[in-house]
Design a protein around this nucleic acid. Structure first.
Lengths: 193, 193
DNA sequence: CCTTAAACTGACTGTCGAGTCAGTTTTTGG
DNA sequence: CCAAAAACTGACTCGACAGTCAGTTTAAGG
């Protein structure tokens, strides 16, 4: 069982850094000191391996987010939004490969024809949108957040955060320096005045 | 010369919708009713074709943005920010394939080793960031925009808009319905109060 | 009309990678 | 200790695709 895990881990790294097509099964095999046939023993084919990687990423994200926000409580809805953003950035740091995978076009293309893939993707974004939506609702009740459709607000905040993370890993410009301003900007976007 | 154009156009469509690796030269050839050798007559190899496509996209974006904003004038900096966002969304509509290409991981990977690719990418984002920065500076002078580092503000706005467009083409959720709220949210993010 | 260059093509090659399979090694638990 | 299942592997196939080349067709203009 430990070899299967190693394969999954190596595949995550390679898929994330080189993309699906430029990652060969031989490479994954080499990286785990196994024969490529071993990979096909554990995973039916390359696509299944990719799906397994995705599922694993999904599980980790769902698990960590649920765990954190089921315990944690916040004074205001706006504070909760900030908490979500911070935790997202934190997660994107430890699970860098996983998040990068979520930004690959290949993943979305696959999702359009493969329901399993689509479910994984949706599960990840659903937990984030739902949390943000809940925070916004809460904020509208405690008066910290302006009246606006909660779901739309949630989607826009998510877009912003997701995009900064994406720009950061692609390092087009120094998006890492934006992490601080990001929370401030999102606060300004939502806060009631 | 018209055949070269047709090849470029077909390649843009295919690269955008299927990705670099899943687009074969034969497919491009078939789509333009030519032999694959013809493509290699016009473009040295597949990568060069991709770069040519990118350059073309860059030129169109730079051209249209410069043309529009060299003429157009705005009352306030905040209005200008809104104008830029609107024009961005408009452009993302007509030049859908081009913008999609800019979101592909492959493009960023290539940019890391290929200076030509990097220059194209930077040129596109530079024109957008610069425009937004200019608008924010203007807004800070006329009092419509809050005091905040202009470049950072520009990057965050760009992230948000770019991401909504991306989500829209990937149609994970109905991001198209966000276009209206997008401008409002960005206004709230920047306006002085 | 003829020459020359540009545009184009069919048929080919070589490589690389996904996937298979028959067989070997390791693990398990009775 | 042994049987049987699970884990693993080397050597192979087969197809797809980027890229080449020698040659043909088309266009230009003198």
């Amino acid at each position: 069982m430990t070899k299967k895990r190693a394969i999954l881990k190596a595949a995550t790294l390679l898929f994330a850094t080189k993309g699906y097509n430029d990652t060969s099964m031989n490479e994954v095999a080499r990286m785990t000191a196994s024969a490529s046939a071993t990979i096909f023993y554990h995973f039916k084919n390359k696509e299944e391996l990719y799906l397994a990687v995705l599922e694993n990423v999904k599980d980790r994200i769902l698990g960590d987010f649920s765990a954190y926000f089921s315990r944690k409580h916040f004074k205001t809805g706006l504070d909760m939004v900030e908490g979500i953003i911070d935790f997202y950035l934190y997660m994107a740091g430890i699970l860098e490969d996983g998040f990068q995978l979520l930004h690959h076009y290949y993943t979305y293309r696959l999702a359009q024809e493969n329901p399993v893939c689509r479910r994984h993707l949706e599960a990840v974004y659903d937990v984030l949108v739902s949390l943000l939506e809940e925070a916004i609702r809460k904020g509208q009740q405690d008066g910290s957040i302006v009246e606006t459709p909660p779901r739309k607000g949630a989607l826009i905040v998510l877009s912003t955060v997701d995009s900064v993370v994406r720009f950061n890993t692609y390092n087009l410009f120094d998006a890492g320096a934006l992490y601080d301003d990001l929370t401030k900007s999102c606060r300004r976007m939502l806060e009631s005045r």
